[in-house]
Amino acid sequence: MAAPTPTSSLARLIASLGLPAAELERLGALHFRDAGHGFDPFGLSPDHVALGESVVLPLYERYFRVRSVGAHHIPRSGPAVIAANHSGNVPVDGMLIWTDVLRQTNPPRVVRPIADHFVPALPFIGTFFARGGMVGGSRGNAQTLLEAGELLLIFPEGTPGILKPFRERYQLRRFREGHAEMAIRHGAPIVPVGVVGGEEQLPALFLSRRLGKPFGVPAVPIPAVPLPLPVRYHLYYGEPIPVHERYRPEEADDPAVVRAVCAEVQAAVHALIQRGLRERPGVFS
């Protein structure tokens, strides 16, 4: 058996400093497919999950003061797809949903964010995210995870969703259909999530595609403020859309069925966002 990696040991140490003992103990019940050396085949490591939570927790609890509504809709086991709106110029929403799912489920579940292709290619960030469960956005990765009964986090708008101009905040971009097709094929319910707060965290003056090129990123936002603002995040989980009960797996090949499911998901996310906007007292509260 291989010795623990230095990064694993360091991850454990930092996590133990940042998380209460009870939370560390709870994370000990985290289920993952150990490929033999403390990592799953995609690189997820429970030590790094704990590290990730300890790093994000101050942001989650104190800076963005996340309010979670309807987390009981997250399936406790089996394959499922969480489909959320994407926003904010930097992917804080993904980190916060990841943390929220981890904290709201018991035994804890790690949601596997499906990231755009450029994310795994980013040095340090790509590796750190992979240790926490992120995988690159290929169909094969998503299928493997669903077959293994994992919980996926997908932003069906993709990068266009996160790079919206401020004046178009909370206006959903066209949902890509891949998540609907995969959910039907693998019998996974889709949990719509409306994220409110992210659009105001980092208003961008403009987007620079030239600056993004060296990093393989579609564009880099030039923000109007130096740091994300301490907006309050509201995460609204909707009732799961039971595509696994309504459709047979082979119907994933029917474009009309896939389009209909995708539209239903988009409508559900839209409704949750509208509810969140109505219910929040203000951007920072």
């Binding site: 291989a2 010795a3 990696t5 230095p6 490929a35 033999g36 050396h37 990592f39």
Partner: peptide, 13 residues
């Protein structure tokens, strides 16, 4: 094979 691990872990092992 039976060993799936990060490159850094292989180096250290």
């Amino acid at each position: 094979g039976a060993d799936t691990l990060p490159l850094s872990a292989a180096i250290r092992s």
